[in-house]
């Protein structure tokens, strides 16, 4: 496995695995992440996997930069024998259109499709979670069909409701918390992506495969109601 190290300030080291996003690099990011989970060095505070890098935050009172390089080199030798954990597949139910997806018509018109065709194409795809970032539990997803790509809104919404499913350029995504944003909203999921009370506070993890399926508004309400009942 090829990689290089560089410092990120005086408390972190970046392991760069490649300089473009591809399947092999993604695989190696996952191998290194799982190695850091299972063989967490005592001087490591935490790590952040991204598209082509894994950044290790360390305690500089316990280890200096050069020593961290040496120790990580030794640790990464194990990586060649390791396989990445099998990707999980997570099903995301989505209620498309209506008040949950006010921009579904725009995405359809923009691509010369009907709303039903946009939904069908969105559902057919299998998406990969490249990384979690931007907001708590927010997945950067790869794998959307160009046929339903759409530009961001000219003026961003002040508040996008949480669990909205949207499209921006060639990407699709789900908003775990309500934030301002310019994405075209096509639907909403009753599933919570950000779970602050859980040990793993994110429904999704880097490497997961995602599939969307369509639910009706009644099903949406039922699932949301059920979830609220659980919480009380």
């Amino acid at each position: 496995m090829d990689y290089s190290f560089s410092p990120l300030g005086d408390q972190a080291i970046i392991i760069e695995i490649g300089n473009e996003i591809n399947v092999q690099v993604q695989h190696n990011v996952r191998v290194i992440s799982s190695l850091l989970e299972t063989h967490a060095p005592e001087w490591m505070m935490e790590f952040i996997p991204a598209f082509t890098t894994v950044t290790v935050f360390y305690d500089p009172l316990l280890i200096l930069y050069n020593e961290a390089e040496t120790e990580l080199t030794a640790l990464l030798e194990k990586a060649s024998e390791m396989k990445a954990p099998l990707p999980r597949t997570v099903e995301i139910p989505v209620c498309y259109g209506g008040e949950f997806g006010p921009d579904l018509e725009f995405v359809a018109q923009h691509n010369g499709l009907s709303a039903e065709e946009v939904i069908r194409i969105h559902i057919e795809g299998t998406y990969t979670v490249h990384m979690i970032g931007f907001a708590p539990g927010f997945p950067y997803l790869g794998g959307m069909s160009d046929k339903i790509a759409a530009p961001r809104r000219e003026s961003p919404r002040v508040r996008i409701p949480e669990r909205s499913v949207g499209i921006a350029g060639g990407q699709t995504g789900i908003y775990p918390i309500s934030t301002p944003g310019g994405w075209q909203l096509i639907g909403r999921t009753p599933l919570r992506l950000f779970l602050p009370e859980e040990e793993v506070p994110s429904l999704l993890r880097a490497g997961d495969a995602i599939r969307f399926h369509q639910i009706s508004e009644e099903e949406y309400q039922a699932m949301e109601g059920q979830k609220n009942a659980h919480n009380t």
């Binding site: 935490e46 952040i48 935050f57 970032g133 931007f134 708590p136 539990g137 927010f138 994110s202």
Partner: peptide, 10 residues
């Protein structure tokens, strides 16, 4: 809040 940045938690 450390240890949760990999889940996007600030």
């Amino acid at each position: 809040r450390f240890g949760f940045q990999k889940y996007g938690v600030v």
